[in-house]
Amino acid sequence: MIAIAYFIALLLAGFAAGIVGSMSGLGGGVVIVPALTLLFGIPLEYAAGASLVSTIATSSGAASAYVKDRLSNIRIGMSLEVATTLGAIAGSLLAAYIYANGISSYLFIIFGVVLLLSLYPTYKEYKRRHRKRMYRDWSTDFFQLSGSYYDKAEKKMIKYSGYRWWLGELVSGGGGLMSGLLGIGGGVLKVMGMNRGMRLPMKVTTSTSNFMIGVTAATSSAIYWALGYIQPFIVAPAVIGILAGAYLGSKLLEKTASQKIRLLFLILLGVIAVQMILRGIGVA
């Protein structure tokens, strides 16, 4: 029976994407889109739709753990979601325009370039340590951009505050735009906005970003649904596979925590990014 074999192949692709996505720190969506388009020959809009829905699943799954650990800051996340949801709407509309005009090769190129540019910051973010300095400006008080969390490694409560709310808002909005345009979570830009822009500690940043990705991806997927980019037979195995893979990946990460494995996966993703660009240009 061919249909079952196809379903299982998609399930396995999702599983692999989930592992690589969680262990590299980039998320399963970034891996599943190239897998579905390059390996299976699935149209980019269907691949992006499957990726978006999977992103909601992994984000909600991981966020529930982070929220319990009090690592994510709901105020900061919510205030930035004003921009990410608007960005997601704009990005989805832009994607609709591109697909309607049959110029999806541009999206392959954009996808590859965005993925390439994400690799270095993703590699670096895990090495960064907590900043001792507290940054403040008018927005720190007005938008209540401070909080505290318990650091398990240092075994103490760490107080933090962020500033330059407008910069975080702007960069996160760009993350929302990427989410709608490419069907990914857009986490890298959200992390940049909060960590480099607002100077929030990395732990708070990554967990808050994860928390936000679900809302951003839900906004994009609502529009993708109406546009018909969600193909249930592709989405179903992809979601289940990615969720299982991401879960296993996070468990493996706790055990190994090796920087070498991360580097290996990031190199692999670099190769995939180049493949996507070549596909867009029409070489591959």
């Binding site: 105020r75 919510m78 989805s92 994009s220």
Partner: peptide, 28 residues
């Protein structure tokens, strides 16, 4: 926390626009 009630409602409105308004504008 009234400021955040308003901010969160704006986020909610954005999502509702994506679900109910944008598809209509696209003719779906």
């Amino acid at each position: 926390n009234w400021l955040y009630v308003v901010i969160t409602l704006i986020v909610f409105i954005n999502i509702m626009v994506a679900i109910f308004v944008v598809p209509g504008l696209l003719g779906h």
